[in-house]
């Protein structure tokens, strides 16, 4: 795959005191790719992601996101990415329509774009009847599908998804992945973390963080071959087991 690079990290490092949370990581992510960012608890995934989203300043190294520098152009990064996580996605005490309006506004859509986007989103998710319902009343699966749609409402170049499917029922989890494929096919790069190893298989490439470093990075098929493992679960187990910190 020879395409445009949208995420580039070179020796990216983050120290907290004398603790190296992220240790000289180097990798590239290409346009329209679904990139799985895996690792054990405490391996440094969240810290790395915060740097890539322009929320935390690296201690050393370089990185550019959608062509913008993580030291100097953090505001430009923020307006060119989307973000959602399992823990924070939408405001529960606002209605569906209000949430779309609020996030669309924050992401800088014009009134006209907002009206059009909001209309087509409600239509696509079949939420017409519920548009004035509070988000808190929606089942988790719907909430996550809506949150994802809102995270890409401004057509960002990259969307960061931090464990978006945790606790979601098996059918909705798969519908969520259908939406991820559609977004990627539309040219949005997807950067995703998950604890479900079957979902690692759905990524074009997967990186595995162990103790702040990237211990492996390749397509699921190649990783399985390199580790002589039958499943991504085995790959994860083999690599993460070597971790010194937990």
């Amino acid at each position: 795959m020879k395409t445009e690079t949208v995420i580039k990290a070179v020796n990216l490092t983050k120290m907290f005191g004398d603790f190296t949370a992220v240790d000289n990581i180097c990798f590239e992510v290409y346009k329209g790719e679904i990139f799985g960012f895996l690792g054990a608890n405490g391996a440094g995934k969240t810290t790395a992601m915060r740097m890539l989203c322009g929320l935390s300043k690296p201690s050393s190294g370089e990185a550019s996101i959608a062509g913008f520098d993580v030291y100097r152009e953090t505001e430009k990064i923020k307006s060119n990415i989307g973000y959602m996580s399992q823990k924070f996605s939408l405001y529960e005490d606002l209605t569906i329509a209000e949430n779309i309006n609020f996030f669309g506004g924050i992401y800088g859509l014009s009134d006209k774009e907002l009206r059009e986007q909001s209309e087509s989103l409600i239509e696509k998710l079949d939420l017409r009847k519920n548009a004035n319902k509070l988000v808190g009343e929606l089942p988790l699966g719907w909430k996550q599908k809506l949150a994802f749609s809102v995270a890409i409402i401004h057509k960002p170049s990259i969307v960061f998804l931090d464990e978006p499917t945790g606790g979601v029922d098996p059918i909705t989890r798969r519908q969520f992945w259908d939406m991820i494929y559609d977004a990627a096919a539309g040219g949005i790069t997807v950067f995703i973390t998950t604890h479900y190893m079957d979902e690692a298989e759905y990524c074009n490439r997967v990186s595995m963080m162990v103790d702040g470093k990237i211990a492996a990075l390749d397509s699921p098929a190649n990783l399985k071959e390199q580790c002589s493992a039958a499943t991504m679960d085995d790959v994860f187990y083999q690599l993460a087991r070597k971790a010194k910190r937990s």
Binding site: G39, A40, N41, Q86, G166, F236, Y237
Partner: peptide, 10 residues
């Protein structure tokens, strides 16, 4: 085991 990685879950 919610939110816990595959190794710790095992």
């Amino acid at each position: 085991t919610t939110g816990v990685d595959a190794v710790s879950r095992k």
